[in-house]
C-alpha cells in the first residue's frame, strides 16, 4: 500500500512549523514552546483558549499539517480520518482535573476539565475545526518507532475507508513522577496522506506499508517517525 505525503506539521522542543516553512524539523528532548492562539490561527478562535494543553498541542500540529497540504480551508465537511499515537495521552489534564476532585469530596469537580480527559479529545476538536468526518481515534503502542498511527492510516487508505488521512503522534512532556522508564520525546507531529498525487510544491514523496509491517519512504525503510519526517523534508 502506498500513499503520497502532502502535508507535514509539527510542534516540538525545537519550535513549530509546517512543510519547508519556519523552523527546521527536529525532535529534541526539550520543553515544548507555549502555544498561543495567534501562533496557530490567524483569526480569533473562541475555543482555543479553553482547550487543555494536550489538545492545543495536537490541534496545532494537525492545523499546520493541513495548512501545508492546502486543506485548512473548507466549505463542506470532508471524510478525512485521523489516527494519533500517544504514550501518556491527556495525563497532564487528568492530573489537573483530579485536583478538582479532591476538593469538597468531589463537589467541585470541573466539568470543563473532565471533557478533556480522553486521549482522543483533541481529534474531536480537530474534526470540528476542519470538518473532518472520517474515523478518528487515538492509539497507545508499545513500540518505540512512533510509526503505529501511520501504519493504521495506510491500512485505512488501502481498505478504502478514506482517500485522505492524517496520522501522527502527540505527547506533552511526561509529568515527573510518571516518566520513569519511559523513553520518548515530547511533541506533536502529523502528516497528511493522500491517494491522489498532490501539487508539486507539497509533494513530499511516497510512503508505503510493506508486507512485513515496515514503513518505507521512497523505497527506503524508515526506522522512526522523526527520521521519516526529516527524509521527507529533505527530499
Amino acid at each position: 500500500m502506498a500513499a503520497f505525503i502532502c502535508g507535514i506539521g509539527w510542534v516540538t522542543g525545537a519550535g513549530f512549523g509546517w512543510g519547508k516553512q519556519g523552523s527546521k524539523f527536529s525532535m529534541p528532548d526539550l520543553s515544548l514552546p507555549p502555544l498561543t492562539r495567534k501562533d496557530v490561527f490567524p483569526e480569533p478562535n473562541q475555543r482555543f483558549g479553553r482547550m487543555s494543553e494536550y489538545t492545543k498541542l495536537g490541534l496545532a500540529a494537525i492545523t499546520f499539517a493541513l495548512r501545508d497540504a492546502r486543506l485548512e480551508e473548507w466549505a463542506e465537511k470532508r471524510p478525512i480520518g485521523v489516527v494519533a499515537s500517544t504514550h501518556f495521552g491527556c495525563l497532564a489534564t487528568d492530573l489537573e482535573y483530579h485536583k478538582t476532585v479532591l476538593l469538597e469530596g468531589g463537589g467541585l469537580a470541573s466539568p470543563n476539565l473532565f471533557a478533556y480527559t480522553l486521549a482522543n479529545c483533541f481529534l474531536g476538536d480537530a474534526a470540528i475545526q476542519f470538518g473532518l468526518t472520517g474515523s478518528s481515534f487515538a492509539i497507545n503502542e508499545t513500540g518505540e518507532d512512533n510509526l503505529g498511527a501511520i501504519r493504521m492510516a495506510l491500512e485505512d487508505l488501502e481498505l478504502g475507508e478514506a482517500d485522505t488521512m492524517l496520522a501522527g503522534i502527540c505527547d506533552l512532556t511526561a509529568p515527573d513522577a510518571f516518566a520513569d522508564g519511559v523513553s520518548f520525546k515530547p511533541g506533536a507531529v502529523f502528516i497528511v496522506l493522500s491517494l491522489s498525487p498532490p501539487a508539486v510544491s507539497n509533494n513530499y514523496g511516497i510512503i508505503s506499508l510493506v508486507d512485513d509491517g515496515r514503513i518505507t519512504y521512497n523505497g527506503i525503510h524508515a526506522d522512526s517517525l522523526p527520521e521519516l519526517i526529516q527524509a521527507a523534508l529533505a527530499g
Binding site: G89, N120, S136, A138, N140, F178, V182
Partner: peptide
Amino acid sequence: VPMAPLLRHIARMLGLTSAGININAA
C-alpha cells in the same frame, strides 16, 4: 498509568508474542 505496561501484561496473560495496540475512541 500509561497503557503500554498494561498492553504487555495482557499479551503475557494470553501468551502472545507481540503486545499490539490500545484504541481510545471514548
